[in-house]
Simulated scan of single mutants.
Amino acid sequence: MKRRTLLMTSLALLPAWTLADSPKVQSLDQALAWLDGLDKADSAKTTGAWPLGAVLDHLAQSIEMSLTGYPQPNSALFQHTAGAAAFAVFKWRGKMSHKLDEPIPGAAPLHMQGDWKIGARRLRQAIQRFQAHNGALKPHFAYGALSKSDFAAAHSMHIANHQDEVVVQA
Rank of each mutant, 00 (worst) to 15 (best):
G48M: 04
Q113T: 14
A160G: 05
S75L: 10
D39Q: 13
K99G: 01
W50L: 13
H133C: 08
A142T: 09
L67R: 00
L146E: 08
S149Q: 13
S43T: 13
T81E: 01
H133N: 06
D101C: 04
W50T: 12
M96A: 13
L100S: 13
L77K: 08
M112S: 08
G53H: 03
A85Q: 12
K91D: 07
H58S: 01
A160R: 01
V167F: 04
S66A: 10
Y70P: 07
P103M: 10
Y143K: 04
K95V: 07
D164Q: 11
H98Y: 03
H162I: 15
A86L: 09
S62E: 13
P109N: 14
R129E: 10
H140P: 01
G48T: 11
A132N: 12
A142N: 00
F87I: 12
A88I: 04
W50F: 12
D39M: 09
V167I: 14
A76E: 14
H98M: 09
I118Q: 13
A160I: 05
V55W: 06
H140A: 02
L38K: 05
R129Y: 05
R122L: 05
A86W: 00
A145C: 03
L35W: 06
G37N: 13
P73K: 05
G119E: 04
P51C: 01
I63Q: 02
A152K: 02
G69Q: 05
Q61W: 11
K91L: 02
A60H: 02
H58Y: 01
W116C: 05
K95N: 10
I159A: 04
H133D: 12
S156G: 07
Q125P: 02
H98V: 08
I104F: 11
K40S: 15
R122Y: 08
